[in-house]
C-alpha cells in the first residue's frame, strides 16, 4: 500500500511522496499548500476509517517526554538537512535509483540501529 501510494502521487500529481518534504514545504510556505495539506488529511483520516471498520491502529509510546521531544527536533532537523526521510529517500528515492537516497537510507538506518542498540543495551 505504501508503494502504491507513492505510485499514485507520481502518476497523478507528478510528485515524489516524501513525508518530510511535503510537510516542510507546508510550514515553509512552498508552492501548492493545498495538495500537501490534502495528502496529510488523507493520511490521518486512514487510521480513523480503519478504527471505524474495527481495525484500530496501535500506538505505544514508552519514550520519556523530554527524549520524545528531543527526538522530534532531531527528526525535523535531520530530514531538512538530509533532504528526506524514510518515505522520500527509503521508498521513492531508492525506487528512482538515486545514489543520494541509497546513501541516505544506509546512513539513517545504520544510525537508527546504532541508537537503539546504545539505548537498549548499553545505557
Amino acid at each position: 500500500m505504501i508503494g502504491l501510494a507513492a505510485i499514485l502521487l507520481l502518476a497523478l500529481n507528478g510528485r515524489v511522496m516524501g513525508a518530510s518534504g511535503i510537510w516542510s514545504g507546508l510550514i515553509r510556505g512552498s508552492d501548492g499548500p493545498a495538495w500537501r495539506l490534502a495528502f496529510f488529511a488523507g493520511a490521518l483520516a486512514a487510521p480513523v476509517f480503519l478504527a471505524a471498520f474495527g481495525r484500530p491502529g496501535q500506538v505505544q509510546i514508552d519514550t520519556p517526554m523530554p527524549v520524545f521531544l528531543f527526538a522530534g527536533l532531531l527528526v525535523g532537523l535531520g530530514t531538512a538537512i538530509g533532504s528526506g526521510c524514510t518515505s522520500g529517500h527509503g521508498i521513492c528515492g531508492i525506487s528512482r535509483g538515486s545514489p543520494r537516497s541509497i546513501m541516505a537510507t544506509l546512513a539513517f538506518m545504520g544510525c537508527g540501529l546504532a541508537t537503539v542498540f546504545v539505548v537498549r543495551h548499553v545505557i
Partner: peptide, 18 residues
C-alpha cells in the same frame, strides 16, 4: 550528516515524519 541526525532521532523515539 542530516541522515545521521535523523537516524538518531528515529532511533530515540521510533517515529519518522510519515
Amino acid at each position: 550528516l542530516g541522515s545521521v541526525i535523523f537516524g538518531l532521532g528515529w532511533g530515540l523515539a521510533g517515529i519518522c515524519p510519515g
